[in-house]
Amino acid sequence: MVSSVNASESIISVLVAESCAMSCELMAAALERNGSGLAVVASATDTSEVINSYVTAAPDICIVGANLKDGVSSGFKATRELRSQSSDARVILLLDVEQPQTVVDAFRAGAVGVFSREEPFEVLCKSILKVHEGQFWIINRQIQYLVDSLKDSPPAITDAKGTQLLTKREQGLVHLVAEGRTNKEISRELNLSEHTVRNYLFRIFNKLGTSNRLELALYAINHGQTMREGTGDRS
């Protein structure tokens, strides 16, 4: 279902995906009343509609509920499929209840923002604006969820074919970054100078297309595979 609002009349075009048409209409009306220059150009209620609507409407931002009409947690599936078809798709996942694992799963699915329905609606509008500017939308407690996840299961960062992108040393450094270590602490842990640690970080950022520690953690969550015995033997 496509709303009557013309995308050319607004700064930011939005696709809304919820579990039913009424929820889509209510969300669309609320977004457009907000006055933040948002135009809902398409809506969807299941995974296939999300993909088709994205291709047809080419929205700037996709707001996807965690549970669509095609099942519990189908919003995560829709996000994964959307991101696999278009790496430019910018998805904010709406969680009914925010739990550490669901936040991690949302970013792992490819979301660039996670929003809990327990938060004020104005914050959702703000998150859309920030994501449209090219930023991630993640609050402090969610960052901690990601850090804890990386501590528990340090990822082996791979490409689509499963090839490891980082050396064993670089992988170890990512693990320490995920633990929240400073450059000075990492230099002591690895017996390296701080200058060398910075060089390693810049090299990792360049390899992965990230620019800071938060983006690195999100990349690791999104592209990582849990390290198993023997993983990361490259020097």
Rank of each mutant, 00 (worst) to 15 (best):
S3H: 07
S3G: 12
V5G: 14
A7T: 07
S10L: 12
I12L: 08
L15P: 01
E18A: 12
E18Q: 13
A21S: 08
S23F: 03
C24N: 14
C24W: 04
A29K: 11
A30G: 08
E32P: 15
R33L: 06
R33S: 11
G35Y: 08
G35N: 11
S36I: 04
L38W: 03
A39H: 12
A39M: 10
V40H: 09
A44M: 15
T47Q: 07
S48I: 01
E49M: 11
I51W: 02
I51H: 03
N52S: 15
S53P: 00
Y54R: 12
Y54F: 15
Y54E: 11
Y54G: 11
Y54N: 13
Y54M: 15
A58D: 15
A58I: 14
P59V: 14
P59K: 07
C62H: 10
G65M: 14
A66L: 09
N67H: 10
L68Q: 09
D70A: 10
G71A: 05
K77W: 01
T79V: 07
R80I: 02
Q85W: 01
S86V: 11
S87V: 05
D88C: 05
D88Q: 13
V91H: 02
V91T: 09
I92S: 06
L93Q: 13
L95D: 07
V97N: 04
V97R: 03
V97M: 02
Q99F: 01
Q99D: 04
P100D: 00
Q101E: 07
F107N: 02
A109S: 13
V112M: 06
G113I: 11
F115I: 01
R117D: 10
E118I: 03
E118Q: 08
P120R: 03
E122I: 07
K126H: 09
I128G: 10
K130N: 06
H132P: 15
Q135Y: 05
I138W: 03
I139K: 13
Q142F: 00
I143N: 03
Y145V: 00
L146S: 03
A156N: 15
A156I: 12
T158N: 15
D159F: 14
Q164D: 07
Q164H: 06
L165G: 08
L166M: 09
R169Y: 00
R169T: 02
R169P: 01
Q171K: 07
G172F: 09
H175W: 11
E185S: 09
S187M: 00
S187F: 04
E189F: 04
E189H: 04
E194P: 12
T196M: 01
N199L: 05
L201K: 15
R203I: 00
I204A: 11
N206P: 00
K207G: 01
S211G: 00
R213Y: 13
L214T: 08
L214Q: 13
E215A: 06
L218H: 07
Y219I: 02
I221P: 01
N222S: 14
H223L: 02
G224F: 04
T231Q: 15
G232Y: 08
D233P: 00
D233M: 12
D233H: 10
R234P: 00
